[in-house]
């Protein structure tokens, strides 16, 4: 019990002591579709958060299983639009890392908030992911193809999460999914503190 009580304080201390990994420079994005497609797939912080969204959606069941992957790109687009048009957003890296931590924890703890609350949590973090992608979009050789690539890449990562999340239909599968949530939360903590 004492150990459980000390965990939040230890977490807070770790967060205050470290600095998030700065993976998004906002510099030239290169080509078009392939560059955009690979951007979320090659960034571990994006991968962790996107898979977590899918896992959580599957864990919550219908209609969250499709509502969360629909909400995410819609709100991500707003963040992307902000990034593309040069509107600054503070704490992008922190927001992205925190998304993996929070959604990963939600899966680990089997959190079942009302659907609206789950959608708001996912939508809030989607803005940070969108901004990170969108800021690099105007530099792409073909921005429209770049946008299409990263939206589809993000969506496919959600589908990976949903596919893994379907394991929750069995008891051992539920444990496995919650374990994956724990790993994602741990990775989020690592991104947040700069350890990864």
């Amino acid at each position: 019990m004492t150990l459980l009580r000390t965990i939040p304080f230890a977490l807070l201390a770790a967060l205050l002591a470290g600095s998030p990994a700065l993976a998004h420079t906002g510099e030239a994005a290169g080509g078009g579709f392939i560059t955009g497609f690979m951007h979320p797939i090659l960034g571990w912080d994006h991968v962790a958060a996107m898979v977590a969204v899918g896992l959580w959606g599957a864990f919550l069941g219908a209609p969250a299983i499709w509502l969360l992957p629909v909400t995410f790109p819609l709100v991500m687009a707003l963040g992307g639009a902000m990034g593309a048009s040069g509107v600054p957003l503070p704490g992008i890296e922190t927001g992205i890392a925190a998304s993996a931590l929070v959604i990963g924890l939600a899966v680990l703890l089997a959190a079942r908030p009302p659907l609206t609350v789950a959608a708001i949590i996912v939508a809030f973090f989607a803005i940070f992911h969108g901004h990170a992608h969108g800021a690099e979009m105007p530099e792409a050789a073909n921005p429209l193809a770049y946008a299409a690539g990263f939206v589809i890449g993000t969506g496919l990562l959600h589908l990976v999460g949903i596919s893994l999340g379907l394991l929750t239909y069995s008891k051992p599968g539920q444990l496995a999914v919650r374990g994956m949530g724990g790993l994602i939360a741990l990775a989020g903590l690592g991104f947040l503190t700069g350890a990864i």
Binding site: V70, P73, S85, A147
Partner: peptide
């Protein structure tokens, strides 16, 4: 899901 992808791409293209 496909419709949400298309909306997202469109919004970002319009914001460039």
């Amino acid at each position: 899901v496909a419709a949400s992808w298309i909306v997202a791409i469109g919004i970002m293209a319009a914001a460039l």
